[in-house]
Design a protein around this nucleic acid. Structure first.
Lengths: 336, 336
DNA sequence: CTGTTAGCGCTTTCAG
DNA sequence: CTGAAAGCGCTAACAG
């Protein structure tokens, strides 16, 4: 590997002059600059970011940690973050915690050891976060996803309670009177908050509302939707006229059960999900859903993080309001 | 930030002893080790990976570059790679080229500057690769995805020609006699190879085969499927009994056109896609598809890369055979 | 405008 | 077993 010294020797100057040239300092004669750049080109010089990072004490790298890369929701979030950070001159170092809390902590430390200038962390939903309060003092960190109990940790979150409300309000506007929340995993903060919003708003609107809690543990959201809905049918011996599924995957599970039972969506029963995943807009699915505003989430996160990196203020807590996306699994009154 | 020197001072030893302790050298008395580790724990010491990388001339980081993070195919590939590399003690530095060739090259260089020990690169389909022949001499690199013309570049690829063959063979086994290939973008190597396999095998089997080339340019695969199929209907004034869509997204587009035209799948027309995306297995879609063997692809890639890193051999070219996944958009003869 | 010097945090000889 | 010293590639004062 050719270094700054090799260039200096070849060009007959000192290493510091090469360094200055490469960092665009005005303190070098144009002629020498050209000479040096010619040699760099010819010899195929590439700077060593480790050495630079070591002396400058910053790397222009940010880290991001997500729970599950194979979930399109996180993948898309990463993509949006990548786009946003690239425009402010940062590169991304991404890690996948595979929904494993130990790994999550390990990778978080790894990012710090690699001297990233800041971290965006989407924690595992339901994980324990005490360990992180120590670290966030050392490196600017913004948590993204759901609201956190820890005031000491900066975060930008989707307002899941609001999301739950939006879903019921829409079903109400679609003429539903008996609604069910299907598929929640109450160990997860996000699910809990959605249920909370669902319940309070349903009560407010005078709806007959029930939340199905599953006796068994199903790891996949789709299975929780499918079995949750079957559980409801068995327990109540009737069909609700509106169903809120805990996520779009859950809604797919509900749809499957409906197909098997011959329940027509939306004419016999209306259905709404959360997340607005990639597949939800496909013509064969076309699911009404409450979407987190990913762009706004990311924008607020990167803004907060860069102000923290620049030393302005400690971050704080911000909420982003989700949006209702109406597709063909629900029908507004009078539009039938 | 607390450094090795701070620990040394606190423990009353020299920095080199701390270093030895942390790297697990047997040349340190157990007692001193314990003393040092206690101080590390208490003072919250975290090693600086930049400094270590600089002196050791290796970072234990690998880089990976994909064209589009928001595409679940790449996201899942990344996830599998992450899992594989973690088990051999490497961390991943991921980059997203956003389908932009300039950005792709820029990030490739960035990875090298960050001194990754090796690179896994999924190039932009159809991009130009000459520029990379220089770099792959400096840092072990394996290209993943489609086969490359450059022998000098190590690669592990899905056999897309074989994939095209598998699709037609399956349609033939399902009793089709008139087949169409819909949605190809012939600037892409992968599409070209799929078409190639489709054509040669269709000829071999004596099928009536046509490849629709679109007059207009549609950036989305789904649109190419939708309009490609409509184009076929208009041009030939008949319905083929088997359709090979260039990708699962393309197949969704074909399905949409079928719904609009009242063509029943699979009874009136059978349909097969490529890629086996996340959504393809959903009950509402349940698409027959030819799947790249991602696990095998990744396994071969990481094996090749680590042998290159360890200095054994130059890599070479390897192909991975894709697999047919039969779902409900095709029906074998006699199974109706 | 350019060279000299010191040092970022760590590892790794070489002495002892 | 431990300390001293050199150096990885680069930047940033300080001289000149």
């Amino acid at each position: 590997m050719v270094t700054i010294k090799d260039i200096a020797r070849a060009a007959g100057v000192h290493a510091s002059t090469v360094s200055r040239t490469l960092s665009g300092s005005p303190l070098v004669k144009d002629e020498t600059k050209r000479l040096i750049l010619d040699h760099c080109e010819k010899m195929g010089y590439m700077p060593n970011a480790l050495a630079r990072g070591l002396v400058q004490n910053r790397t222009q790298n940010l880290g991001m940690l997500v729970p599950d890369l194979s979930n399109p929701y996180y993948a898309e979030l990463m993509s949006i973050v990548g786009n946003a950070t690239k425009s402010i001159g940062y590169n991304m170092l991404w890690c996948n915690s595979f929904q494993d809390e130990e790994l999550e902590l390990k990778y978080f430390k790894l990012l710090i050891e690699n001297q990233v200038d800041g971290i965006i962390m989407h924690p595992i939903n339901g994980g324990r976060l005490e360990a992180y309060t120590r670290f966030v003092k050392n490196v600017p960190t913004v948590f993204i996803g759901d609201i956190l109990p820890q005031q000491a940790i900066a975060c930008v979150s989707t307002d899941n309670e609001k999301a739950g409300s939006l879903a019921v309000e829409h079903l109400y506007a679609c003429g539903c009177s008996s609604v069910a929340f299907i598929g929640a995993d109450l160990r997860k903060r996000a699910h809990n908050n959605r249920v909370k919003g669902f319940n309070s708003t349903a009560t407010l609107l005078g709806l007959d509302a029930s939340v199905v809690s599953l006796p068994e543990d199903y790891p996949s959201a789709m299975d929780r939707g499918y079995h949750g809905f079957r559980h409801y049918l068995k327990q109540y011996q009737r069909i609700p006229d509106g169903v809120v599924a805990v996520s779009d995957y859950g809604a797919i599970g509900v749809m499957k059960a409906c197909q098997e039972e011959g329940i027509a969506v939306p004419s016999a029963m209306q259905l709404i999900g959360f997340d607005n995943l990639d597949f939800s807009s496909l013509p064969n699915i076309n699911l009404t859903t409450v979407a987190p505003n990913k762009e706004s989430l990311v924008e607020k996160t990167t803004a907060m993080l860069s102000s923290m990196i620049d030393g302005h203020g400690p971050g704080g807590h911000e909420k982003v309001v989700p949006q209702l996306i109406v597709r063909s699994t629900t029908i507004k009154k009078g539009e039938l």
